[in-house]
């Protein structure tokens, strides 16, 4: 880890003012300190967000939930309103990392979490995301943990967050503050596909700071679940995960939100699957059918082809488990 100067602003305005080309914001540090130790991120200035407040969770008048950037993963997961109105988010958060890391990690930090691709994490290896134009080591290397959806010829790195998958399903807005004022970015637009520029990971301008994430109002009467599949039972990133939210009228699906983790380059909304499910009977067979749709455009590689089937299984089971709650009267 190279030396840097720590700037500890007391206001969002000062924090934005302190931002520069060679600076980085720090929240809990679970991503940044890790990557600084590895030499992957080497900011000259680190701007500490821990004196900025931004640690409230509040219900807005329109029923949405406004989450401060610095709210920790632990607190968000166990917030009574989140547990009641967004259990899928609570489950997703608690499936991520470990107790200690969740105590440190912040909401904004998790949104900004960077890929776990080992080639990205080693400055000695070519990586288009870390050093544009150097090539992608994973493409012809080991790509078991890599994405099958949303990839490009330049990058197949997976977005690692569980929280973001739940947020993608729930629907959310990322509120950012910059020198030109406040901007609200729809969650699905916040993270960018790698395309020709895998180094661009999000729609955040260089002077902007995430101040809040606002969750859409909960769907009336919805049931949901977050299912995470991985090698060991805990403390591991997803090989495939699914956040599923559905509403039902009798046996018919009236609304569906399906988001995927572990299989895509960004928190992945399976819109084709959602569309196909609405209006259909909530049956295991139907869930399997829509799960196939979600991976229609998947591009598997040497080691990650299994993720297509695993991801389909995650969708079908998550939908089934969610719907089972409805039949058991466990509405969210």
């Amino acid at each position: 880890m190279q030396s840097f100067e720590l700037i500890r602003p007391e206001s969002v305005k000062d924090a934005i003012g302190a931002q520069s080309e060679r600076s980085a914001y720090i929240g809990g540090g679970t991503t940044l300190v890790d990557l600084m130790k590895l030499g992957v991120m080497q900011p000259d200035h680190v701007v500490d967000t821990n004196r900025l407040g931004l640690d409230e969770i509040e219900v807005l008048d329109d029923g949405r939930l406004k989450i401060g950037a610095r709210v920790s993963n632990s607190r968000l997961a166990t917030d009574a309103r989140v547990e009641r109105d967004y259990p899928v988010l609570s489950q997703a958060l608690l499936s991520g990392a470990s107790t200690g890391l969740r105590n440190m990690a912040t909401t904004a930090g998790n949104v900004m979490q960077r890929t776990r691709c080992p080639y990205f994490r080693d400055p000695a290896k070519p990586c288009n995301k870390r050093e544009p134009g150097t090539g992608c080591s994973a493409m012809d290397g080991i790509n078991r943990n890599h994405a099958v959806l949303g990839t490009s010829e330049h990058c197949i790195a997976t977005h690692p967050s569980d929280m973001c998958v739940a947020m993608a399903a729930i629907g959310a807005t990322v509120v950012v503050e910059g020198r030109k004022g406040t901007r609200e970015i729809p969650f699905e637009d916040f993270h960018l596909l790698p395309g020709d520029h895998p180094e661009r990971e999000h729609d955040l301008r260089s002077d902007e700071l995430i101040t809040h994430v606002v969750l859409d109002a909960p769907l009336e009467g919805a049931v949901s679940t977050y299912l995470k599949l991985r090698d060991r039972a805990s403390y591991e990133f997803a090989l495939a995960s699914c956040a599923a939210i559905v509403t039902l009228e009798g046996t018919k699906v009236t609304a569906a939100r399906i988001a995927l983790g572990g299989v895509a380059t960004k928190p992945w909304r399976a819109v084709d699957a959602e569309a196909a499910l609405v209006g259909e009977d909530a049956t295991a067979k139907m869930f399997e059918q829509v799960a196939l749709l979600a991976f229609q455009r998947a591009i598997p590689l040497e080691h990650n082809a299994f993720k297509v089937e695993l991801g389909q299984q995650a969708i079908a089971r998550a939908l089934r488990d969610a719907v089972q709650q409805a039949s058991q009267g466990e509405h969210q």
């Binding site: 720590l6 809990g28 540090g29 300190v33 200690g100 890391l101 440190m104």
Partner: peptide, 10 residues
Amino acid sequence: INSCLSLAIS
């Protein structure tokens, strides 16, 4: 917390 990822100065 994991003290290895936490800057002392904070």
